[in-house]
Amino acid sequence: MAPPSDHTDRHLQKLAALITQRRVALGLTNKEAGAARCGLSPMTYRKIEGGERVTDTSYAKLEIGYGFRPGACREVLDGADSITLEDGTELIEGGQIRDHVDPARLAEVTPGALTKSASLHAPELTLGQIESIAGGFMEELRRLGVVPKED
């Protein structure tokens, strides 16, 4: 059997990084917990996070355990830069990208987030000034069609 190419090694390392990232995001503090969640032996799981190749069956178990779409591991090994989760979230090295933003939820949480941020970063502003800024910001988001207009 020929030794793996650097290209293949890079893909294995990317897959290992994405899987480690997902384990941590799920609150699994060690590899043994990851193995248990996926129905894998600890040794097989350590190989995966170590960037070693395992069987397609092991990758399939991992996909089920971590909520990846079927074939996601193979896609990374074939050169993809991300893994798509069952809920449509895209897992990239160092972060996640959601398929969509719920405009109603965005409209609900944005004023509070703006108020908190402004009070931390511009403490000289009054609450009235902060609320005015948040109101203007929300009105601009509505005008742009990012969040729904108020009823």
Rank of each mutant, 00 (worst) to 15 (best):
T29F: 07
L18P: 02
L40I: 07
C73M: 02
A2M: 14
Y66H: 12
D99W: 10
D56T: 07
R143F: 09
F137I: 04
K14Y: 01
V24E: 14
R10C: 04
L127Q: 12
T126K: 02
I130P: 00
R46L: 04
T126N: 03
E52M: 08
C38V: 02
H100F: 14
V24W: 10
S58M: 03
V54E: 07
Q21T: 04
E139K: 13
G88R: 12
L144H: 14
G94Y: 09
Y66G: 01
P111M: 13
A2G: 10
I64H: 09
S132Q: 11
D56H: 10
Y45L: 06
L18H: 05
E140V: 13
A2C: 04
A33R: 07
P148V: 13
T29R: 15
P4A: 07
L141R: 05
H7S: 14
A2V: 10
V109F: 13
G145D: 11
C73V: 10
T44N: 06
L62E: 00
E139G: 03
I19H: 01
E32F: 05
D102L: 02
S82H: 14
A17P: 02
L120E: 12
V146S: 07
G51Q: 08
L62H: 02
P4M: 10
L28V: 07
S119M: 11
S5H: 04
Y59V: 03
P103G: 09
L12Y: 06
G145P: 12
M138Q: 08
K47T: 00
R46P: 00
P103N: 08
T8V: 15
T84H: 07
L144Q: 15
A104V: 15
K14M: 09
L141K: 03
I92V: 15
D6A: 12
V76C: 11
S58H: 10
V109C: 04
D9W: 01
A113W: 08
G95R: 08
L125V: 01
M1I: 04
G79K: 09
G88L: 12
G51C: 06
L125D: 02
R98C: 09
E49C: 12
T110F: 09
D87K: 11
L15S: 05
S82K: 06
D9Q: 13
G128E: 11
T20W: 01
R143H: 14
R142A: 13
L120I: 04
